[in-house]
């Protein structure tokens, strides 16, 4: 029972990170019907940017302020990265065949990945220990660290905020409208380009939080980590139903818990292989993902 609860806590933590990254894939897919393969690399980039900011400001600021400033500035810089990515790699191909955009996405992914390697080198970088003070809470044999609590709370707050934004605000409703029918959205007076940019900004900023969590929680970051974290988050988005925002959150959590249980009960070397077994099983029984069902639209 203790292993179960411990792995559940660990799973929810990594699941939150997957969910944050998965949201970026699913939101862009929702609006553009495009898999933004460069998203994972943007997440990796954010981990490096966050590290630079942390090292510059460490010792100057109090721990709480340091974390706050690091998060906000990394989110802003990564969001700008998302805007540049959209402008350079996707907007010129908006009316091109789908395959061109996919190739462009893969190209952008390689540009960012190799850019990181050229700037920071091929060797892993290590986040400083205890950016977040290393405090563990013992709940009857189940340990939860302050870092884990921080990951869970911040992720939850961001996801609730995103949910409210998308469902309760005018711009959020416009975003859902663009995901359904862009021309009809234009006829409502919606500036579709602006909505697309907003989608990239939000997706990239959430991905940046994911990237920072990866750095602070696992500590080791590599130039090509966008590939592996991106792939996991992408799988999470598909499991939940690509294009569906609550689906990405659910898929991320499920995948995180699943991976933690595989690591706890079998072996962590099996987690990647079994992730795809899970994906295949879900795709067989629910090809649209868990929440990916859409109401039939009459024409």
């Amino acid at each position: 029972m203790e292993i179960f609860l411990q792995q559940l806590v660990n799973g929810l933590t990594i699941g939150s990170i997957y969910a944050l990254v998965a949201l970026g894939y699913t939101m862009v897919y929702g609006v553009l019907k495009l898999i933004n393969f460069a998203h994972g690399d943007l997440v990796a980039l954010s981990a490096y940017i966050g590290l630079v900011i942390l090292m510059q400001l460490a010792g100057v600021l109090s721990p709480a302020l340091l974390i706050l400033i690091t998060f906000i500035s990394t989110m802003v810089i990564t969001a700008i990265g998302g805007i540049v990515l959209e402008r350079a790699a996707y907007r010129p191909l908006r009316r091109a065949p789908r395959l061109s955009a996919v190739v462009s996405a893969l190209g952008a992914s390689m540009v960012i990945e190799n850019g990181i390697m050229l700037i920071w080198g091929p060797m892993p970088k290590i986040y400083p220990a205890s950016v977040v003070p290393n405090i563990n809470f013992d709940l009857h044999g189940v340990y939860i660290s302050l870092m884990q609590i921080l990951v869970l709370v911040i992720s939850l707050v961001l996801m609730v905020a995103l949910y409210l934004f998308v469902n309760r605000t005018k711009l959020g409703t416009a975003m859902r409208a663009c995901a359904i029918d862009q021309d009809a959205a234009r006829l409502m007076g919606i500036d579709v380009d602006k909505v697309i940019v907003t989608t990239f900004v939000i997706g990239s900023a959430l991905g940046a939080v994911g990237g920072l969590f990866i750095g602070m929680y696992y500590r080791g970051i590599t130039f090509n980590m966008g590939w592996i974290y991106g792939l996991n988050a992408f799988v999470a988005a598909i499991i939940g139903g690509i294009g569906n925002i609550p689906g990405a959150m659910l898929g991320g959590m499920l995948l995180g818990i699943f991976n933690a249980f595989i690591s706890g009960y079998i072996s962590s070397s099996w987690s990647m292989a079994l992730t795809y077994v899970l994906l295949i099983i879900i795709m067989i029984f629910r090809p649209t993902g868990i929440l990916g069902e859409r109401v039939a639209e009459k024409v």
Binding site: A174, R176, A177, I180, I190
Partner: peptide, 22 residues
């Protein structure tokens, strides 16, 4: 528009609110 092009997965009221987007 031709073919109505309503936003099928949004509610009727959300569709109307979008009409007043500007």
């Amino acid at each position: 528009p031709e073919g109505r092009r309503v936003f099928g997965t949004l509610t009727v009221e959300e569709n109307l609110f979008l009409g007043a987007y500007t």
